[in-house]
Computed example of a mutant assay.
Amino acid sequence: MAEINLRRARQIIKGIMARGKEMDLKPLSVIVLDAGGNVKAFERDDAAAPGRFAIAHGKAYGSIMLGMAGKAQMARAEQQAYFMAAVNGVFGGQVVPVPGGILVRDAKDNIIGAVGVTGDTSDNDAVAGLAGIEAAGLKGEA
């Protein structure tokens, strides 16, 4: 199975940060996880709040561990709050089920990692995230 290497993770982050600037978003924080949920790379705009690492991680971590992007997680949380509460308990409170958690797929549609973007509205975070993933030649599922 293909995986996200450090070079590709940095390309994703660079693309996300560039899109955030184009959209005039608030300062972003971005994390890239591999298919096992391990941190591959993280970057935070200078003016971003220090607590954004945990939020970005939670968005990406929930996506990779559940195989479900942030928008789908949010819909599930709205329909079955008890399920997402249980899942969050299983994962030690690390899941943030909102847009901005994006699955990363390769050319064969395999999940090879996840991205978490935070700093602006969750929907804007997802837009910037998808743009960065596509700029790195991969497919994103928000």
Rank of each mutant, 00 (worst) to 15 (best):
Q80G: 02
G100P: 13
I112F: 01
E134Q: 15
A81Y: 08
D46A: 14
G89C: 11
Q94S: 12
R19K: 15
A131N: 05
D46R: 14
S29Y: 05
M17T: 10
V30E: 01
E3R: 06
M65C: 12
H57P: 00
A85Q: 15
M1D: 08
F53L: 15
G51C: 03
R105T: 00
L28M: 10
I12C: 02
D106N: 15
I16A: 04
L6V: 12
V96E: 13
S29A: 15
F91K: 04
M84T: 14
D24L: 08
I112C: 00
A56R: 03
R19G: 01
M23S: 07
D46P: 06
A136S: 14
V117F: 01
G92A: 12
M23V: 04
N110E: 14
V32A: 09
E43P: 03
M23G: 03
I133R: 02
R44L: 09
L138A: 08
I12H: 02
A142Q: 10
P97S: 12
Q73T: 06
Y82L: 09
D109L: 01
L25E: 06
M65F: 03
A35H: 11
R7K: 11
F42Y: 15
G58I: 07
A18H: 04
I133N: 02
G70H: 03
V115H: 03
E134R: 14
A107V: 11
G58C: 09
G37L: 08
V104R: 01
P99M: 09
G101R: 04
R44W: 08
P27V: 09
V127F: 02
A85T: 14
V127E: 09
N5T: 13
A75L: 14
V39N: 11
A86S: 15
A2N: 13
P97Q: 10
L25Q: 13
R10A: 06
I64C: 05
N5A: 04
A35I: 12
R44C: 09
S29Q: 06
L25D: 07
V32H: 09
Q94Y: 03
G36W: 07
